[in-house]
Amino acid sequence: MAAARHEICAVALAEAFRGDGEILASPIGVLPQIAARLARATFAPDLLLTDGVATLIGGVPPVGLGADAPVPVVEGWLPYRAIFDTVWSGRRHVVMGASQIDRYGNQNIACIGDPARPKVQLLGMRGAPGNTINHPTSYWVPAHGKRVFVAKVDVVTGVGYDRARALGPRASRFHDIRRVVTDLAVLDFQTPSRAMRLASVHPGVTVADVVERTGFPLIVDEPVPTTRLPTDHELRLLREVIDPRGVGAREIAAA
């Protein structure tokens, strides 16, 4: 079976959770949600997932069905207070979006322009400072481009590797940005300087495409591998079980 781009992204996002064990996966966004469910249905069966409100849910329920969605099996109760406890305990892996991200993984979701009087107000700090200093974080960027991948973010909401290093080894010991998945590529920080590296390009994308659409110098170790394709089993799960209405594709199209 031939995989579409959003399905390749879903698998690349699912791979972020590989090896995480019995911790809370908090995927923010449609494809991250699809990815976390795919990971749990395959190689990361112990992940804990919520319904996005206050309930831990069992099984691999579908996304995007709205009122037609089956009532999921309830595993437990996780109101915001318990989520904050989980964040600070470190037993969580979040996938956040980023309106801006720089070469060390500093993320901005707060505003564009001067924070005293922003040109564009965005989401605010939300939980990004606490997430990034306490537990593993990955990012999902559905439209890889120079508006997002910038030399300097206007506000640091999620902490990057240069900021973490400046805090010293003790304060930064739980800081861990795993990967950045975009519609073009997978990026990580597995470099001596902890600057962002091009880890793989999605099938059909060239290294030059990614470099050109990134607003800072990426570390590129040639040859850059190609992002792995979904297996037939993963594609069947995506199309028949997790995302039967194909809502994941729209997240890239809309970006």
Partner: peptide
């Protein structure tokens, strides 16, 4: 708390202070 360390929460709220653990850590 650790939350806020390294982020612009600290620079945009200059009234915020840090505290050092009185224990061996």
């Amino acid at each position: 708390t650790r939350a806020g360390l390294g982020s612009d929460v600290m620079t945009l709220n200059p009234h915020l202070r840090t505290v050092r653990s009185p224990y061996d850590d």
